[in-house]
Nucleic acid binder design. Structure first.
Lengths: 133, 133
DNA sequence: CCGTATCCACACCGATACTG
DNA sequence: CAGTATCGGTGTGGATACGG
């Protein structure tokens, strides 16, 4: 997903248009990997950058760094630099604001879990029905 | 917003990978206008296509039709053709499954509402902080 | 009234490489 | 170890037009 929702919402807020509450929230975790980052940091505590890389092996180095930066800009995560040694490590953790998103993320997890179970049970080709042409 | 999350999730499910519950849910309402469509249909009942157009004046004719088709494919909305007269009208409404998403959408509304109030009160340039370069 | 096709601009994201 | 720049493929969404 794209980040266009996020940029559009930012523009609307700059224009004084606050009639985008749902989109504003969506923009917080819209974008590839963001939901997973928030979920991991929320349920398992803080992680170093390279640990997040290991948790999300399909995420490219560049995109992971970019998404973390955006989450930090949105005040959802904290970034702490540990400069003790030859190598610098950076630890990420959820802010209280980021933690306040967890009920929504968890609700999304539960909804998806239940829906996937239903589809599996009824064997409807996993429910990804195509409209008849 | 894009639909890449939706397509990616569909592919993962086809591959037998069900470890994407949160992304699966996100894919339901990710994509421009979808959250608003669900919200309107959920809180105000069914609408004709042209009524939705009026409710979402910035959505192009093409994209609105496309998103409605996707929502229908995902079994979130029903589509009913009323062919009484020279002009055909099409009514859209939420399915029970679509209605089951409302608690999440409403939670997103509430989160965004509260967050925007906080930012307004504290006047932090509406919180869209930029990371120092 | 509603759906879809075409064309086009642009944003995203991956691969790669360079920096500190 | 972590962040950023560049290049390129691809998907998304707007304008427009045509078909049912």
């Amino acid at each position: 997903m794209t980040d266009s929702v996020r940029k559009l919402v930012q523009q609307r807020l700059r224009d004084g248009d606050y009639t985008c509450r749902k989109e504003f929230t969506l923009a917080m975790f819209n974008g590839k990997w963001k939901v997973n980052i928030i979920y991991h940091l929320g349920h398992e505590g803080s992680y170093y950058f390279h640990e997040l890389q290991a948790l999300l092996p399909h995420a490219s180095h560049k995109e992971l760094a970019k998404k973390l930066k955006e989450l930090q800009e949105d005040s959802l995560i904290d970034r702490e630099i540990e400069d003790n040694g030859p190598r610098v490590k950076v630890a990420y953790s959820l802010t209280p604001l980021g933690r306040s998103l967890l009920p929504i993320i968890d609700a999304m997890y539960d909804w998806g879990d239940q829906r996937l179970r239903e589809l599996n049970v009824h064997d409807v080709q996993f429910g990804l029905g195509q409209v008849k042409q």
